[in-house]
Computed example of a mutant assay.
Amino acid sequence: MSTPTPKRPDPYLGKVISAFEGGIVTRVIDHPYDSNRVFAYEVTFHLRHPRVAAVAAQKPPLHFHPYQEEYVEVLEGRLAVEVEGVEHVLGPSDGEFTLQPWCNHRLYSPVTDVRGQAKEYDDAWDGEKTVFLLSGQDTDEMFRLDTVFFENWYAYQDRIVVNGDRINPIQVMNMFDAGGSYLSLPTWVPFSRTLARGLGIVVGRWIGGLLGYQPFFEEWTTDWDLACRKMEMSMFHKRFANREGPREDKVPLLYTA
Rank of each mutant, 00 (worst) to 15 (best):
V189Q: 00
E82V: 14
F150G: 02
R78V: 05
F217T: 05
S181N: 12
R247V: 14
S192G: 04
W102D: 10
P169K: 06
H63L: 03
R205T: 10
R239E: 10
R8D: 10
Y121V: 05
E248M: 11
Y255A: 12
M231A: 06
N174Q: 01
E87S: 13
E248W: 01
D223P: 04
E69M: 09
G198F: 12
C103H: 15
H88M: 02
E120G: 03
T194F: 14
P101A: 10
R159P: 03
E218N: 11
H49Y: 04
K129I: 04
M142N: 10
H46T: 08
E232A: 08
E87T: 12
R193G: 05
F143S: 09
A155K: 12
I201N: 05
I29L: 01
P190D: 07
M142D: 09
G136M: 03
Q214Y: 08
E42I: 11
D177E: 13
D34M: 01
A40V: 04
E219V: 07
L133Y: 09
I167N: 09
T187K: 14
S192H: 15
G77V: 01
P66M: 06
L62W: 10
P92H: 01
I201W: 14
S2F: 08
G180N: 06
V55F: 02
L62V: 10
P32D: 01
H88E: 07
W220E: 13
D158I: 02
V111F: 10
F236P: 04
R159G: 12
T98G: 06
T187A: 13
A227S: 09
L133P: 00
W206D: 01
N242K: 15
T147R: 09
F97S: 02
Y156F: 08
G245T: 10
P92R: 08
D140K: 01
A118S: 15
H105T: 09
V86C: 11
E21W: 05
R239P: 03
L79W: 00
P92I: 03
G200C: 09
E73L: 05
S192V: 07
Y182E: 05
S135Y: 02
T139N: 04
V72F: 13
N163A: 11
M1A: 14
C103N: 14
F132M: 06
